[in-house]
Design a protein around this nucleic acid. Structure first.
Lengths: 340, 340
DNA sequence: TTGTAAGCGTTATCAG
DNA sequence: CTGATAACGCTTACAA
């Protein structure tokens, strides 16, 4: 197990200076084709591998911090795919951490990322993150983008889907196509911005419809289990005409609970995110598609643009959600009056 | 925007040498309580942040490479949660990359990880990885563990669930509890080791049962869509008594397609991995639970043990899968003869 | 208990 | 086009 092969070894072996060797590796300086060949050959025979860490001591590093609440939530998984693939394609690596949606974890992990000198940061902030987080990141002074969740009242760069529009699309469909007169929004963290914005969109849609529509607002965790519990609860009372769920997991749990209660089809269900499983569920899930992967790619590209100096500051993007209509929101074959 | 604050600044400000400052930060040397306080105070007022990169130039680094085929497959997501949380708890950070299950991508990303001097490597190898990969990693000489997939014929450290046992459990249930006489194994990459092992277990179960049971072996992608297509195909012919799917996504797609064909309940379905959505699907999915999260934690711990010198070599682990019986494999209320 | 000094492997500046 | 030489920020014998 010999010593590590360093640039100096390569240089010696090729009969050039360290500088020249460095030039051919980074492609920076002007080097004659002949010497380049020689150096490349030496690298190969010596089995030299570039030391990114050492290099980062001088130039800017090539690792990027990626902060997510839960890697295993399907939607975040999609986002991560977009982020990671975009970065690695450009030669950057992603230091991914998952906060479990807890503020103390988030603080700890951000500190670690900082110590690792990440060149930029993409963050889906833990629910409850406030201006303290923004201040922290500002003082840190590294290009940052908020992804999928933003901090209320902070004008930081943000890439996400238009939540207001998403809520609007769902509610408008329930009211217009299905003549719903009572709607429940189910799930999500109480004060989450996504939730608030979507409810905003829902209310807007209700206001536009000229009929009286009642709106009930229920919070819950964003899991299948929570959806099941909520469904069991709801099934005991009179069901609303339509239920908009904070995500597809909740929606699937809800649908299952209603099925168990013998009330499948008794209300219209719309999910959110349109994850892969949505089309396979029975009934197949109508859902607001947000294209997490695209979101991730967009965020990554925005960061790369400022890292490479193309842009002076990170640009915000709001993507347009689409409503994917399937079976869970009721019959589309003809009229569809509420079956109260 | 001032210069970076370095250890030297801290030392000066606290009126000690760089060494002493370093000692209090790393907790390495013996420092008087008084000076420690002074240094800590200086760190705080100066806003010093430790430079992990610079430190790694001397001592071993604290980043670990994590290679996955697809971050967004639910099961891998679970595994990643386990890996990541275990590492960050011990102060290590995970450099995660996703190969899209392609060998060339995998090679490229491994090279990048190597240049980043990762202290260890956890890898779910891309399908088709062979001894070349093993050789590459061996020459690299960094503690490595194969996770969830191993390389056929290589005795490298491996943490995964007992696939043979998993296949056995599924088949045994179909044969014993449901008296199935024809079984199909559906999905997975043609020459994947998991697939081969599970089929092995299936055959073992069939051999143990004293009755003639036929086995059909169908490959497919591991997605919901592929499951749907396979289901449409299968529904056209005579269905087997039971179908064991390579994962839950396939199983859900399959169940949906059979439902659409009006043949729900016409066969018994068993999934694999027991992801969160399995319990919510209609019918709820019987599945072989592999506890991906535990797998990830185990692999991470095995690596940490050798990094920290507690163990001389990475230890392999095989975890025991469990069969979670739900509705999709048929009625358990009484007798259950095949309904041919 | 604290300080001195020699690296770690690369990049950047500035002459040749 | 090529080569010295000085950083970069930290760890770690070894000496005091």
């Amino acid at each position: 197990m010999g010593r590590r092969v360093t640039l100096i070894d390569v240089a010696r072996h090729a009969g050039v200076s360290r500088t020249t060797a460095s030039y051919v590796i980074t492609g920076t300086g002007r080097v004659s084709a002949a010497t380049r060949e020689r150096v490349l050959a030496s690298i190969d025979t010596l089995g030299y591998v570039y030391n990114e860490g050492a290099a980062s001591l001088r130039r800017k590093g090539r690792t990027i911090g990626v902060v997510v609440p839960n890697i295993d939530r399907p939607f975040f998984g999609e986002v991560l795919i977009g982020v990671e693939s975009t970065f690695t394609e450009s030669g950057y690596m992603s230091l991914m951490v998952s906060t479990r949606d807890q503020l103390d974890q988030q603080a700890r992990l951000l500190r670690m990322l900082r110590e690792h000198q990440v060149a930029a940061l993409a963050i889906i902030p833990a629910t409850g993150s406030d201006h303290d987080l923004v201040d922290d990141l500002r003082s840190w002074d590294v290009p940052t983008v908020f992804l999928s969740r933003y901090i209320a009242g902070a004008a930081e760069p943000y890439v996400g889907s238009d939540e207001v529009r998403g809520g609007y699309l769902a509610a408008e469909h329930l009211v217009r196509a299905h003549r719903c007169r009572s709607i429940t929004y189910l799930g999500g963290p109480k004060r989450g911005v996504a939730r608030i914005d979507r409810l905003d969109g829902v209310r807007r849609a209700l206001a536009e419809s000229r009929s009286e529509v009642s709106l009930v607002d229920l919070t819950s965790e964003s899991t299948v289990e929570a959806g099941i519990r909520a469904g069991q609860e709801l099934a005991r009372r009179e069901l609303p005409d339509g239920i908009i769920c904070h995500n597809d997991s909740i929606a699937m749990g809800l649908a299952r609970a209603l099925f168990d209660a013998g009330r499948s089809g008794a209300t219209r269900i719309i999910g959110y995110d349109d994850v892969a499983a949505a089309q396979a569920s029975v009934p197949s899930l109508t859902s607001v598609a947000t294209n997490g992967r695209l979101l991730g790619e967009t965020a990554a590209r925005a960061l790369l643009a400022v890292i490479s100096g193309v842009e002076p500051a990170v640009r915000s993007h709001l993507t347009e959600p689409r409503l994917i209509v399937r079976e869970s929101c009721g019959d589309h074959s003809g009229e569809d009056a509420p079956t109260r």
